[in-house]
Write a protein that binds this DNA or RNA. Structure first.
Lengths: 331, 331
DNA sequence: ATGAAAGCGCTAACAT
DNA sequence: ATGTTAGCGCTTTCAT
């Protein structure tokens, strides 16, 4: 493997100068710069990252914390984060965390072990002490798709979005509306709040009884949630699922029971993952601007890493209600 | 950050001994080993990877080459590869490649730049010189889900599987069967071969005219493929899609045209991605044992990296035809 | 069984 | 503008 010394020797100069050229520093005579560049081209020299990393005390890698379910939503969001991050010269490293206290703690340990330049969370850790520890480590952290006080966050206004989604149902004439949500995750809590708010504004009582809580945002739990709902009593004409994946699972059960969507039951999701537009029926949902969220997240983290400790910024992006085929007016 | 020197100093011994303990080497008196372990526990010491990497000339990271579409199939497979790889102490780094010559070349450059311990390909590069270059680099490489001569490969027998899928259609009485496939990727070629073989065995002529080739395995291209098929003439009763994603796109178009699946047209996919079982109708498909493929791939690569250059092993895993709701007997 | 010393490839502070 | 030097944290001979 050709090293900086090889280049220096062949160019008849010192490694320092080669380093200056490689890093685009000033104070190098044009002629030498050219010569070095040419040599690099010829030899295919590439700086050794481990070495740079050691002296610079930076790893050039950022950790991405995500749920070990690695569901479609997260996978899509990751794609949108990875690219801009790469353009800033970062690599990404995954940290999967389960929905358990012990897994969260272990995640923190692993996060510490790697010498990360920064952390992006696209899945929230429930234990608040996690964030305290990160703060102590002075590790730049930004959260994407949810708001974490004290850290830069890029997200939409989930409560408002949920409210709009439910309101869409209400405007369609629905009064008996159920929700499949999560109570362990703050995103679930916020979406549930929006649900309650819309119901209350419409004068619909007993909202609390209308929501069923499941543990994770997966199609499996969507099925489970709907089964539970049906077990209690099928007296609803519409369902709001806290995520598209939940909605997809719920629709699966509905279909299997011979209950038609949207004729018998309208369904609204949340997130607008790719597949939602391929479903039959196409899912009505809230679109999160994943592309922009990814881009902003990368930008802000980079700024945070390079520019210093000005945390706390909270960026709220616009969402959009996408009305498709899974909802219709109450007959 | 606590370093090996700190531990050594506190334990009143030399860094060498600490290193021995950390790496589980022999020739350390039990008492000292205990002491060091205790200190490590207390201080939360973790070896600096960059430093180890430099002296060991290993990066502990393996590159994963995948299509920049990062479709559902790849996302799922990645999950199954990442875990076992992690248990061997490797990290993963993504290398997305587009379906273009230039992107493939650039991928090779980036692959070289990183000091990778190994490479896993879950997407094939079309340019054969790519593999020559990797061979020259003496970089351990294993391919997952497709066979690359000269490298360890873990995959199913795609041609046989495709044959079985099509045969299922034939057994159902279908004679007018179309295929949506790819000709740029060898997996597409192999699946197409299976399609031909089944048709020929059944005495169905003009097989070549029955397949439409698209560029990528995405739902979008599935839609495109079906639209083209319909444009030519709707004289088929069944369609075999080279992947589930393609099938999903195809079914979308069918549905939009008011053509029922499976009553009017039976559809078979390939891969059995998670979502296929949630579709309406549930997709009949070929199941690739992703879990096992992922596990084996990680194992074999690890062995390859640590054990030396015994490339060439070719592991063929069993597949399974999963008959669900998207196919039915020809009426 | 243990320590001293060298060196992995690079950058930056300090000379000049 | 350029070179010399030290050192990042670790592992590994080579002594002892």
């Amino acid at each position: 493997m050709v090293s900086i010394k090889d280049i220096a020797r062949q160019a008849g100069i010192s490694p320092s100068t080669v380093s200056r050229v490689v890093n685009g520093k000033k104070h190098v005579r044009a002629a030498k710069r050219e010569a070095v560049l040419k040599l690099i081209e010829e030899t295919g020299y590439v700086p050794n990252n481990a070495a740079r990393s050691m002296v610079l005390q930076r790893s050039f890698t950022v950790g991405i914390v995500l749920a070990d379910t690695f569901n479609m939503f997260q996978r899509q969001l990751f794609s949108f984060i990875e690219r801009p991050l790469g353009s800033f010269g970062y690599h990404t490293r995954f940290f999967f965390v389960k929905f358990e206290r012990s897994s969260e703690e272990e995640c923190l340990t692993r996060l510490k072990a790697e010498k990360l330049d920064g952390i992006i969370m696209i899945h929230e850790i429930q234990n608040p002490s996690f964030y305290d520890s990160v703060k102590k480590l002075e590790l730049p952290l930004v959260t994407a798709t949810f708001n974490q006080p004290g850290f830069p966050s890029i997200h939409i206004h989930e409560e408002d979005a949920a409210h709009d989604a439910v309101n869409h149902l209400i405007n369609l004439g629905h009064r008996k509306i159920k929700m499949i949500s999560t109570d362990g995750l703050s995103s679930g809590t916020r979406r549930t709040k929006g649900f309650f708010r819309a119901l209350e504004a419409a004068g619909i009582k007993g909202a609390e009884e209308h929501v069923i809580f499941v543990r994770q945002y997966t199609t499996e739990f969507g099925m489970y949630g709907m089964r539970e709902l049906l077990l209690r009593k099928h007296d609803f004409s519409a369902v709001f699922a806290a995520t598209d994946e939940l909605a997809i699972g719920a629709m699966r059960v509905l279909k299997d029971k011979g209950i038609r969507v949207p004729e018998d039951v309208s369904v609204v999701g949340f997130d607008d993952i790719d597949i939602s537009n391929y479903f039959m029926p196409r899912l009505t949902t809230i679109r999160q601007p994943l592309n922009e969220i990814g881009e902003r997240t990368a930008q802000i983290l980079h700024k945070y890493i390079t520019g210093g400790r000005d945390a706390g910024a909270d960026m709220v992006l616009p969402y959009q209600l996408i009305i498709r085929e899974s909802t219709c007016a109450l007959k």
